[in-house]
């Protein structure tokens, strides 16, 4: 429970920190709306020319874009700013202060920065999902909603673990913040479409595409009734494996870390 108190305190502090800049809130919102309009125009242009994109229809893709915005918001809320701060801390040596605190170091490193602007994206994304679902006009059972939340959670764990592993590499390579730029590019561009349209070799060779698939395409499949039992089991297993791997890697890195002054 100590961990939860730590999490809550850090989230509150982060919120207070950013509430000082209110104009940024509106500009951020404007950016989100422009981004959504872009995706929407793209979808409309595509479905002006076809009715079916490898089994996905127009309204399915609107749901998918909503999920992409929601997930981007959740990542930008805590994970990404914290990982950026972590790499910066390793480079500047300020991480050492954090390591002396009496709480789990991985938890502290993972929630050290909060960017509340992520919340509005998450809310906006949820709204887009609802609009998409109402267009689809399909009955969504409570079970499907539960399943959606579960695979969404698993997808977020995969992305979190993936980013933590990337950021932990900074213990050895120091200047790595560009790695997150690559992730953003992949997520923003490739994540907008169902992963099933990419040829298999491309999915395999672009490792960055894989976590994107689990965080966006699979939750979208769960809501639009395209998900089979094995994929669900596989997603949970992969989330578990990713989480354990990132935790082991973090510990391994810390054991080899001698501190900035040593």
């Amino acid at each position: 429970m100590h961990a939860l108190t730590v999490l809550k305190t850090y989230l509150q502090l982060g919120l207070l920190n950013v509430m000082q800049y209110r104009a940024d809130f509106f500009l951020q919102m404007l950016g989100t709306i422009i981004g959504f309009a872009t995706s929407l125009i793209g979808i409309l242009v595509i479905f002006n020319r076809t009715t079916d994109l490898k089994g996905w229809e127009r309204d399915d893709l609107i749901v998918l874009v909503g999920i992409q915005i929601l997930v981007a918001g959740l990542i930008n809320l805590v994970i990404r700013p914290s990982m950026q701060q972590l790499m910066e801390g390793i480079r500047l040596g300020t991480l050492d202060f954090m390591l002396t605190k009496p709480a789990d170091s991985q938890l502290l490193a993972s929630v050290q920065m909060v960017n509340p602007a992520g919340i509005q994206d998450a809310v906006f994304g949820a709204g887009v999902i609802l609009v998409g679902l109402s267009l689809l006009d399909a009955a969504i059972s409570p079970l499907a909603v539960v399943l959606f939340l579960l695979v969404l959670g698993a997808g977020l764990i995969i992305i979190y673990s993936f980013m933590l592993i990337l950021s932990t590499c900074a213990f050895w390579f120091v200047k790595l913040d560009n790695v997150l730029v690559i992730f953003n590019t992949m997520f923003g561009n490739a994540g907008q479409w169902p992963i099933t349209i990419y040829p298999g070799w491309l999915r395999a060779s672009l490792t960055f595409l894989v976590p994107v698939a689990f965080a966006v395409t699979i939750p979208a499949q769960s809501l639009t009734g395209r998900l089979d039992g094995w994929t669900v089991v596989g997603t949970f297993a992969l989330a578990f494996a990713f989480f354990v791997a990132s935790r082991l890697f973090w510990r391994f890195a810390l054991r080899h870390y001698t501190g900035a002054s040593a």
Partner: peptide, 20 residues
């Protein structure tokens, strides 16, 4: 890489459209 990814994604999407 970002210059490459965006046309690559459009390429895959439009090839898929042409295919269907």
């Amino acid at each position: 890489l970002s210059t490459v990814v965006q046309p690559l994604v459009s390429l895959v999407v439009w090839r898929t459209v042409a295919g269907s």
